[in-house]
Nucleic acid binder design. Structure first.
Lengths: 231, 231
DNA sequence: CGACCATTTGATATGGATCAAGCGATGTGG
DNA sequence: CCACATCGCTTGATCCATATCAAATGGTCG
């Protein structure tokens, strides 16, 4: 139950990103993703293993094959903020600076494709399409970060509802979510405490918006109610 | 924050590279900024005038010549979140999607250089350097958004201190800040209320970290103390 | 079975929101 | 030039959502 998905679903239909239609020109398929497939080396990471650390040189780009990755930052007093969760098919680690601004860890045992940044960047220099897609990908991350900002100004109910809807959207089975991350991870993503996350889930369950058959499995029972909370 | 050139230097000397020449580019000057200068049309916006609205087609890119611009989103219940403030020299409006995801307004009377996105994108298709800089610029916005996220999980004091330090860093006079925006704007940027912003400034003043000669002018008296708050 | 860890639930505390005045600067019409 | 309205800001009193502290529960694995 911990290992949420197998490598098989990495071919899932999910797009690199994008809520509303990006100008991803349907014709030229994921050239970048393909390049990564071709150039990358698959690499396993054990549960909780560090993939890279904040302030390390950003030499590589990563694509999740199986498992889930979290990126995060820790403030000097210990507070941790999770920047994002990356599911199979997602690409992460594409800072443009010389150093990573977040750390990355495997939430569960993961397989990750690793590709040298310099190789991609130089490919981008020759191939406009690749360049465009690197840009698009960064813009997708920007969109995600902006959505995250909007989440952080909301009430606990709204944050949790928004989180569940986001996870559902990104999962294959859109009405049932199998959460790979702990309550603590969710709390640190939403800027709440585990207790508040837990209580909020209970409330949502009591109001019949969701069901929680096991702590890691959430059934969206009333999507309309959740969307309403999503402000 | 993207390209921190002052409005005055826009007239600055020429381009080292021939326009029609191929990527000369040993000295990677601000080609993009320069292109915007060359291709853009200066346009005035009155205080509080809308520059573009959320969900409008993102046809243009903008560079602040003078004044200050805010981008924001309004939730359906009226809560407003300010995404960023743009000062002279900053470029904004570079969503990659077809539509703006934020609205933009002039905070004070502004002059803004406006350039067609399509023109820049097509230029980027021909000029790798321009393409790279569009990417860099988007990555810069991403960085800003991530910093914003980190700000939003902090206490009121930390948020306000962080905001003041950020504004000081971006202003010429780094020890004294002349805020172009209202308390309400600051509050909506920091995810606080005007009352809390006001009270926090008073506290910081009482603890001798800052002075507030007039409500729009803040003197950083003890930068170390502010940085300490900045976690 | 027993230890451990994640999660839930309960009791209480508190930072910031909300509600409500007050105040000072700026501008306007008489 | 002054009375007064307006607006942005500050200050005060109270409330409330979420944090914090604490304990119980439940699932997992040796």
């Amino acid at each position: 139950m911990l290992t949420q998905t197998t490598a098989s679903n990495r071919v899932s239909s999910r797009q690199p990103e994008g809520r509303n239609g990006r100008p991803v020109a349907p014709a030229p398929v994921a050239t970048l993703s393909n390049s990564i497939e071709l150039m990358g080396a698959p690499m396993p990471f054990a549960r909780n293993a560090e993939i890279y650390g904040e302030n390390e040189p950003a030499e590589y780009l990563y694509k999740v094959l199986s498992g889930t990755v979290r990126t995060y930052k820790v403030l000097n007093d210990g507070r941790r903020q999770i920047g994002a969760f990356y599911l199979p098919g997602d690409i992460f680690g594409l800072e443009i600076g010389e150093e990573h601004t977040f750390s990355a860890e495997a939430i569960v045992d993961c397989k990750v494709l690793v590709v040298k940044r310099s190789a991609l960047v130089s490919l981008a220099g020759r191939d406009n399409e690749v360049a465009r897609q690197l840009w698009t990908m960064t813009a997708g991350e920007l969109q995600r970060a902006q959505d995250h900002i909007m989440l952080l100004i909301k009430t606990a109910q709204e944050r949790v509802a928004g989180f569940l809807l986001e996870m559902a959207r990104r999962s294959a089975a859109s009405t049932e979510v199998d959460l790979p991350m702990s309550r603590q991870d969710i709390a640190d993503y939403l800027g709440l405490t585990i207790e508040t996350v837990s209580r909020t889930l209970t409330q949502l369950e009591n109001s019949a918006a969701i069901a929680v058959p096991t702590s890691r499995r959430i059934v969206l029972r009333n999507r309309a109610a959740l969307s309403r909370l999503n402000a």
